[in-house]
């Protein structure tokens, strides 16, 4: 079944690690909707959020192939778990005297913040899940969007720990020490 999956990939923070991940996804023809990278709570580990569209078996392959990269410590598929998804958007909207009040009212509905204002524009910041951001942008479009930037998705499981059923398991990862 074709589904959107959100994978959280914990990687060792080494030079070139993002290149390794992106190169792997490209050469194995996996389709990625978005990828974000940032620090995690653990020093030395970066957290990558990947949004992958594909059959369940294909997404499982993405996880298994990622595990073959030396820097990849853990891959978790958040789909099917209770998880919170967020994106952020910065948008510069045309807002002259006659429309400014209306723009600000709509911004208020979406809890968007005003970051900057000029006599003819407003810069707004909004966060939310993908649908909310899309809806916010649709509302802003009629006023005239001068500039827009949208981050990829970040995500976190609701439970205290990421649940084991979301884990794409390294099958039998019995520890094995080098000689």
């Amino acid at each position: 079944m074709q589904n959107s999956h959100t994978l959280v990939v914990l990687v060792e923070d080494q030079p070139g690690v993002l290149n390794r991940i992106v190169s792997l996804l490209r050469r194995r023809s996996f389709n990625i909707d978005s990828i974000t990278v940032g620090h995690s709570e653990q020093p030395g580990l970066s957290r990558i959020t990947l949004v992958v569209n594909g059959e369940d078996a294909e997404v499982e392959q993405v996880g298994k192939q990622l595990y073959k990269l030396l820097e990849v410590v853990k891959v978790t598929d958040l789909s099917g778990e209770g998880a919170v998804y967020r994106e952020m958007v910065l948008v510069k909207v045309a807002a002259k005297a006659q429309t400014r009040a209306e723009v600000l009212t709509i911004a208020g509905i979406y809890d968007a913040k005003v970051l900057d204002a000029t006599p003819s524009t407003l810069m707004l910041e909004a966060t939310g899940d993908a649908e909310t951001i899309t809806s916010f942008l649709n509302m802003m479009k009629p006023f005239g969007v001068r500039e827009m930037v949208r981050t990829g998705r970040i995500a976190m499981a609701r439970s205290g720990q990421s649940k084991s059923n979301g884990r794409i398991d390294r099958i039998n990862s019995d520890s094995y020490a080098a000689d």
Partner: peptide, 12 residues
């Protein structure tokens, strides 16, 4: 010794 926590080949 060598080894990385992220590299654990499955032998058994």
């Amino acid at each position: 010794k060598t080894g990385r926590r992220s590299y654990q080949p499955s032998l058994i």
